[in-house]
Design a protein around this nucleic acid. Structure first.
Length: 270
DNA sequence: GGGATTGTTTAAAT
DNA sequence: GATTTAAACAATCC
């Protein structure tokens, strides 16, 4: 469930604590979670900086290699000290010179990681096809990506090749904020409302980063701590609770194959 | 033990 | 070919 704000929070925390440190040891516990590359190549490398692209956590190394994680549903990457007991579903451990250790754990093992040199990263199709970062554009430019398309608005928001980093939480929250029903066809939504949607999406993403992300089950930041943005959810996970706007019960429907919580009364279906 | 969970890929359809 | 939709998949928990 880590989406853009959660991965951003992890990246910032790791960057602050691990950048400049050298990797002394790398231990691959579960070979299946290795997408490509060789963890041995990490040994001796210095961590230049830790950043994020879409939902990808990227640890940039001194030799220009990138150690890239996708956390999918239940993945966590965090920094423990030398005495840290490894959790049950630990798949990769990086021991730093300081004694700290970067731990990649993932209960369900949907997540993965890879080691890429710059050419390999450029050739990685998933990475190459990612759409623009929603926080790096104006609402109006963002809206232009959605305008006129026949697909459902929620399906477009979730499509990583259209714009990057949005998952079920922030799709539902921004659609509610803009009062748009998730099943609306994008082409039927007036451009002004699309711009409102994009502005709300940006506002919510920034607020969520500010709050350290959202935790309701598995997500933790780089120090193993929970975020608090879930306290600000208006609709996500709140089926049958009163709509914050009209007090009538929120409903769920399946859109683009995912549970979509919304207010049937407030959110207009275009 | 089966259903639910999610993001992504792949296949099929338009 | 481009775009959209549906189904499949990963693994685990309760």
């Amino acid at each position: 469930m880590p989406e853009l704000p959660e991965v951003e929070t992890i990246a910032r925390g790791l960057d602050a604590q691990a950048s400049g440190q050298r990797i002394a040891q790398a231990r691959l516990v579960t070979p299946k979670v290795l997408l490509r590359g060789n963890p041995e190549a990490l040994i001796g490398q210095r961590i230049d900086r830790v950043t994020r692209r879409a939902k990808l956590l990227m640890i940039m190394l001194g030799n220009d290699d990138a150690l890239v994680f996708h956390l999918k549903m239940t993945g966590r990457v965090w920094l423990g000290d030398a005495s840290q007991t490894l959790p049950k579903h630990t798949h990769l451990v990086l021991n730093l010179e300081s004694g700290d250790q970067i731990i990649f754990e993932d209960q369900r093992r949907f997540g993965y990681f890879g080691v890429f040199n710059p050419a390999e990263l450029a050739a990685w199709d998933f990475h190459a096809r990612l759409g623009p970062e929603p926080l790096s554009m104006t609402p109006s430019d963002l809206a232009a990506l959605l305008h006129g398309r026949k697909a459902g608005i929620k399906s477009l928001l979730l499509n990583q090749t259209v714009l990057a980093g949005i998952g079920n939480i922030y799709a539902d929250e921004s659609l509610f904020a803009a009062r748009i029903h998730p099943a609306s066809m994008a082409a039927a939504i007036p451009k002004k409302r699309l711009i409102t949607l994009c502005a709300e999406l940006q506002r919510i993403l920034l607020a969520a980063i500010e709050a350290g992300g959202s935790t309701f089950s598995d997500y933790r930041n780089a120090y193993g701590k929970s975020g608090i943005f879930q306290e600000h959810f208006q609709v996500y996970g709140k089926k049958d609770e009163p709509c914050p706007a009209c007090q009538r019960p929120l409903a769920t429907t399946t859109v683009a194959g995912r549970t979509s919580t919304h207010c049937p009364h407030c959110q207009r279906r275009y």
